[in-house]
């Protein structure tokens, strides 16, 4: 659709399930639903193993977004919501997940989810969401040992990058590769504030900078912004990035360079970390509830 093409900031939506797994063999079927400001995810786990997930845009109404994400994750699995023993809601709209048994903070869920996705050696998780940025330190079990969050300001969040994708007319999914099409790395945009960075960028464009160069300058500024956040918390290896921005190599590679650390790689959608952590907590809580009778 033509209208879709002009929306440079939109991510693709999709769902996935593990064809090798059968829910009928599982003792515990649990789910996590992460209703974020921009996108929502639902994850279903079978005995602590990832079984199916969905990732879609958040609509104007949190309960509907939660239901849609859950239904899409359930699609073609043969499962229905009734068979799921425990559901955890997380994210910005976590208290608005009507079928959730409990709401858990994103910080706790991202720590837990990253531990599953990247393995127990992960000590520092950077989650870059649509409207916030979280730095989390965890132990080998995925339990949070320290955290820091910025949700006051759009700098260093997905929203800031969307503003630039829109301004430059470069699709959000292409930002990474486009930002490396520069002869020499330009100095970072000097304003932290997205509004001021935008006027600075407009000035650079007028001064004849190609779009890619402006984009590179903004990616560096964003990387620098989150690195200061990470450094305040202290970075310990191994290091991983979750959330939408983790898919943006233009920011990731520049964060790695500034930190002098390589982020762990994973063959999973980095946006599902929160919902996945939620599903794993759901199982632990279901077990706890069973024990208590």
């Amino acid at each position: 659709m033509a209208t879709e093409d002009s929306e440079y900031w939109r991510w693709k939506e999709y769902n996935w399930k593990d064809p090798e797994m059968d829910w009928k063999d599982a003792e515990f079927i649990t789910a996590g639903v992460d209703v974020g400001s921009v996108s929502s995810q639902a994850v279903i786990t079978l005995d602590s193993k990832l079984f199916a997930y969905s990732n879609m845009r958040t609509g104007s109404n949190s309960p509907d977004s939660a239901r849609n994400a859950m239904n899409w994750a359930l699609e073609d699995t043969g499962l229905d919501l009734e068979k799921i023993q425990y559901v955890v809601g997380t994210g910005y709209g976590r208290v608005n997940v009507p079928f959730a048994d409990r709401a858990i903070t994103e910080i706790a869920c991202h720590g837990r989810g990253a531990n599953y996705m990247y393995g127990p050696t992960v000590r520092t998780v950077l989650d870059m969401g649509g409207q916030d940025c979280k730095a989390i330190r965890t132990d080998e079990k995925g339990k949070v040992t320290a955290f820091l969050m910025n949700d006051k300001c759009a700098a260093g969040t997905g929203r800031g990058m969307e503003v630039f994708a829109d301004l430059l007319g470069i699709h959000i999914e292409k930002v990474g590769e486009e930002s490396f099409k520069v002869e020499k790395e330009p100095p970072a945009v000097s304003s932290t504030c997205v509004v001021f960075a935008k006027s600075e960028a407009t000035g650079l464009l007028r001064a004849g900078w190609p779009k890619n160069k402006v984009l590179a300058a903004y990616c560096s500024a964003m990387a620098h912004r989150v690195v200061t956040l990470l450094e305040r918390l202290g970075v310990e290896k191994e290091f991983a990035i979750t959330g939408g921005i983790a898919k943006n190599s233009g920011v990731v590679k520049r964060i790695e360079k500034e930190l002098g650390l390589t982020a762990l790689d994973v063959n999973l959608d980095t946006q599902i970390a929160g919902a996945l952590g939620g599903a794993l907590f759901a199982e632990a809580l279901a077990k706890k509830a069973q024990k208590q009778g």
Binding site: R137, T145, F147, L148, K152, T192, C193
Partner: peptide, 10 residues
């Protein structure tokens, strides 16, 4: 756990 609440601004 070291829980940090707040922000950084200009």
């Amino acid at each position: 756990m070291q829980a940090n609440y707040g922000y950084r601004d200009g």
